[in-house]
Simulated assay, not measured.
Amino acid sequence: MSAAESGHAALMDGVYRHQRHVYDLTRKYYLLGRDRLIEGLHVPPGGTVLELGCGTGRNLIRAAQRYPDARFFGIDISHAMLETASAAISRHGLSGRTALAKGDATAFDAKALFGQPAFNRVFISYALSMIPGWEKTIPAGLAALAPGGSLHIVDFGQQERLPGWFRSGLRAWLAKFHVEPRDSLREALESECQRTGSSLSIQTLYRGYAVHAVVTRAS
């Protein structure tokens, strides 16, 4: 891990060392669209799913319950979050088909981490807005897909149809947690789709509060 990556890992451990214990309880009120993403994964029977920035494991658990025939994998840069995720996955009896590893979502080797070279689905839920150099996560996620697989993203949008006071207040509050909505996400996705020949479906949710994107790799 580079010095920059190690610095970000230490920052995330510091931010979430205590928050991780109440993270899921508090975040459910404003991390909107996560369950919509999970429902839209449509994982094939016996498929494999990777979450980048898996945090507390909340999404992996929901997805594993929704798709009982699939296998799940998650990486996160925070050791503290991975401890919480591992404990939660074990409590739900999902350790047998869920594997976790410490890694950087912008540059990872899935085969080295999991012995799994490619996945049917890769998803990123409210993590791009926390990752320095987040643009690199998109090609990294696409590179981890099997042919015909899809990359699913949900994150903060531009809040373009919400009142200005709400938008400015939300962003000021998010900044306290080192979170920054990625206003150029659409452009970054379109660029990668053009480069790789992938197709893109993107929609705004809740008057622009969130954005939900699906990139499908060519077969």
Rank of each mutant, 00 (worst) to 15 (best):
E51D: 02
Y29N: 10
D76L: 02
I75C: 01
G96T: 12
E160S: 10
M130Q: 15
G115E: 12
A99R: 15
L25T: 14
E187S: 14
N120C: 12
G149I: 04
A172Y: 09
L189P: 03
P147G: 03
A64I: 09
S191E: 15
D69E: 14
E190P: 03
L185K: 10
Q159G: 06
A127G: 15
L145G: 05
F108G: 06
A188W: 05
V122I: 08
Y206L: 15
S129C: 13
Y30T: 04
D109P: 01
F119N: 06
T137Q: 08
A63H: 13
D13W: 00
S201E: 15
T98S: 10
L113I: 07
F177L: 01
E192T: 11
R195L: 12
L151Y: 07
I138T: 05
E187G: 09
R34Y: 02
C54G: 03
S95M: 07
G47L: 05
V211C: 06
Q65A: 10
L37V: 15
A172N: 13
D183H: 15
E135C: 03
V214R: 12
G33K: 00
V154W: 05
H8I: 02
R91M: 11
A118I: 07
L151V: 09
D104N: 15
G96H: 15
A175H: 15
V211K: 03
D69H: 13
G96L: 11
A3V: 14
T204V: 11
T48P: 12
R17V: 00
L37A: 06
L60Q: 11
R217D: 04
V15E: 00
R182I: 15
E180N: 14
L200Y: 05
E39V: 08
L32C: 04
G14D: 00
R91D: 07
A218F: 05
L52S: 04
R62Q: 13
G14W: 00
R186T: 12
T26Y: 10
L25F: 13
A140M: 04
P163E: 07
S199Y: 03
Y30M: 05
M12Q: 12
T26N: 08
G93S: 10
A140T: 09
L170S: 14
F166S: 13
G14L: 00
F177D: 00
L52P: 06
V15W: 00
A107F: 02
A88Q: 13
A88C: 12
A3C: 08
M1Y: 05
I138R: 08
L128T: 11
N120T: 11
L37E: 09
A146V: 08
H152V: 07
H21S: 01
E187V: 10
F177C: 00
V214W: 01
P132L: 03
R182V: 15
A101N: 06
R195C: 06
C54M: 02
G74H: 04
I38S: 04
G164Y: 11
L185R: 05
C54H: 01
T48V: 11
I153C: 03
